[in-house]
Each structure stands twice: as C-alpha cells, then as structure tokens.
C-alpha cells in the first residue's frame, strides 16, 4: 500500500509497454511413444535428459536432444486418441512426432482434436509414408523400422534447434534407410517423402525434408509470422492509442510491413505486402497480407553441352 501523503503530493500513472508475444512453443516438440511394459500412459512429461526419457519409453526420442533441442515433451500412449489430452494440457508445442512403433492402422485412428501444427510419422513403407505426408501439415518420413525413427527425430531436432529457419538440405544423418540408388531416390522425391540417401562418398544425407509437398519450414514460418504480426499490432495499438484515421491506418500498416520485411531480409520470403485500410465499421480496420509460400531448393536439373563450335 502506497503512502497516502506521497500519493497526494505526486500521483503517478504507471505505464509499461506490452511485451512481444512468446514464439518459443513453435520450436517445442511432443513425442507420442509406446510406453514401457506396465508403464503409465496419457501424461505429458517434459524431459531434458536421455535417462528421463528412458524412464518413460524405449523409443529413441532422446535423439531430439542430441540434435540440439533443450527439452522434449514425451507422451506414452497405447493408441493415438490424443484430442482430450491435447485440449487439457497447458504445455504448448507446434510439432507432434508419432513414433514409428505405431502402425499405419493406429495412425489412421489418430484423433488430434483441433491441433493445427506439424505431425511427423516415420515408417518403412513408401506408400504409407506418402499417404500420411499428403495431408494438413503432415510429414511422412521413410525410414527402416530397425532405425527406430531416429532419422526423423534427428532431422526435426536439427531444424527446430537452428537459429533461423533452414530446410536442412543434405545434412549428415545418423543412419541409412536402405536407399542408395538413383531410381529409389527419384521415387521418393516424386512422392515428396522425407528420406535419407546413402552414398559411397558422402554417407547418409537428408535428401528431402518436406511437409505436405511444401518446404518443411513453411508451416513454421507462417505460424511465427502470424504471431509476430498479431504481437506487433497489439504493441502498436497499446503504445500509440491511435485514432480511427487514414494516417493512423497507414502508420500501423508500416509497422506491420516491418515484420514481413524482416523475413524478406533473411531470405525466408521473397516478398510480402501488408495493406491496412479503414472500413465503415467502428473499431475495426481491414488488413490484407499477401505472403508467398517459403520454398526450398533441393535439386538441380542441368544441361551441359560438350565441345566447342
């Protein structure tokens, strides 16, 4: 309680700017794994060490930590009925990785409620990996069952622990997936399946990493950009208390454009345009935001002519 005399002599209106929204959850991962025999299910646990994970499951999601993530959420389950658990949890994440121990039949029963993030699944079946990878923000990762999904965990760990959004083209991977011929690789590429290619000289390399036929970073960039635009709008309006005028709409537009320009400067987006305009309504301005899809360069089709004319 403040002193009445101090308050009487000098009344101070405290003022604090609105902080930026946290985007940390975009880099958080939930691993859905089979439990240990007699192990508990249905509880999400944040793990920071391999031993903590191994106390819950034999799945290899500790590879996410080895790839650079500081922690992972682990959810032991016997089935993929996740909707109630995802709705009830206060933990936030944008990626769910379903361990390869879950079969295609179990995956078809997946109920993720209204989860809108990326869901990856690793499987040793090209058709099943393709079918899974052709929906929402899904990632179908082809890998040998014997590898225990470690390649998928490693690829996501590398991407999500990087300082900026990179598609991880041809990073070195821990295990081969039995793909070592150009024909096998072409088939994988045609179906936009994420996979590891093994070459004699360069060993195991990530040869494609995609989400629903798009660059793997695309859903993450959209999510982060949306959050940053919303956060900037809140900060701008709370700091400047704008009137409903054309000039204020233009200055808000410029502030939002600055967020998009940041992604263009980093080379993540090629361009992007924000337009804010007044409407006939009270309180609400209209904004249109045109953002091209982030794309990734993986391959080159070249033609070389030999000889001189």
């Amino acid at each position: 309680m403040k002193d009445v005399l101090l308050e009487y002599v000098m009344k101070v209106d405290a003022y604090a700017p609105t902080p930026s929204a946290s985007t940390a959850y975009i880099r958080k991962v939930l691993c859905v794994v089979k439990p240990l025999p007699e192990g508990a299910t249905g509880t999400i646990t944040e793990c920071t060490t391999k031993s903590e994970i191994q106390a819950l499951t034999t799945a290899n999601c500790h590879v996410l930590l080895e790839a650079g993530l500081p922690s992972v959420y682990v959810l032991p389950m016997n089935d993929l009925n996740l909707a109630d658990i995802l709705e009830a949890t206060n933990k936030k994440f944008f990626t769910i990785l379903v361990d390869g121990a879950f079969t295609n039949e179990e995956l078809n029963e997946l109920d993720d409620g209204d989860f809108a993030g990326v869901i990856g699944w690793s499987v040793e079946n090209r058709e099943q990996a393709k079918n899974w990878g052709y929906g929402n923000n899904n990632v179908g990762f082809y890998d040998l069952d014997v590898n225990g999904s470690q390649n998928m965990y490693y690829a996501f760990g590398k991407m999500l622990s990087a300082n900026n959004w990179k598609n991880q083209q041809y990073i070195e991977m821990p295990f081969g997936s039995g793909i070592s011929s150009i024909n096998q690789a072409e088939l994988m590429f045609e179906d936009s399946i994420s996979f590891v290619l093994t070459s004699e000289e360069y060993k195991n390399r990530l040869a494609l990493f995609a989400s629903n036929r798009r660059a793997i970073v695309a859903p993450y960039v959209y999510e982060e950009l949306t959050l940053k635009l919303q956060s900037k709008a809140l900060q701008y309006i709370s700091l400047n208390q704008p009137n409903y005028t054309e000039s204020e709409a233009s200055l808000l537009e410029d502030a939002l454009q600055g967020v998009v320009d940041g992604y263009v400067e980093q080379g993540i987006l090629t361009h992007g345009k924000v337009v804010v305009s007044l409407t006939d309504e009270q309180f609400v301005v209209q904004a249109s935001i045109n953002i091209p899809e982030p794309k990734a360069l993986w391959r080159i089709r070249a033609t070389m002519k030999q000889g001189e004319i």
């Binding site: 005028t245 054309e246 000039s247 709409a249 233009s250 200055l251 537009e253 410029d254 305009s277």
Partner: peptide, 14 residues
C-alpha cells in the same frame, strides 16, 4: 523513423 503523412488519404513518405 521520420514520417510525413497525408491525413486524408494515408499517403506517406517514411
């Protein structure tokens, strides 16, 4: 950021 802005139209130079 130094701005000059038209109040009627929102046209600006920043």
């Amino acid at each position: 950021d130094a701005f000059f802005i038209d109040r009627r139209t929102g046209e600006y130079v920043i």
